[in-house]
């Protein structure tokens, strides 16, 4: 599958407009003959679903999932303004 601007744009819209995903913060990076999805989400279920939905929509496109979970630890410092 040739990855051009049309494919990249379709992928981008899918990530935002598919109600199962609705993510505006995932970047699409061309990687070899496929794409890498890069970003952070709030749950492992969302990460897995994004990669599944993209693979379903683009079955001939190799997709690497480089999506992490945003950390939620307590802050240890304070910024003085």
């Amino acid at each position: 599958m040739i990855i051009d601007q049309h494919v990249e744009s379709e992928l981008h819209q899918l990530l935002i407009e598919d109600a199962r995903i609705s993510e505006q913060g995932i970047r699409i990076v061309r990687a070899g003959d496929g794409v890498s999805l890069v970003g952070e989400v709030e749950s492992a279920e969302r990460r897995d679903l994004i990669c599944r939905v993209v693979a379903e929509a683009f079955p001939d496109l190799p997709v690497r999932c480089n999506i992490g979970l945003t950390r939620v630890q307590e802050p240890q410092d304070v910024e003085e303004l």
Partner: peptide, 23 residues
């Protein structure tokens, strides 16, 4: 005026804390 973007993927923790002193 100091501006802080506290979008969770930017601050990468549950919340940030800012102390207003100088003002």
């Amino acid at each position: 005026v100091p501006v802080r973007n506290v979008a969770h993927p930017v601050i990468k923790q549950a919340y940030n804390v800012y102390q207003l002193s100088s003002v």
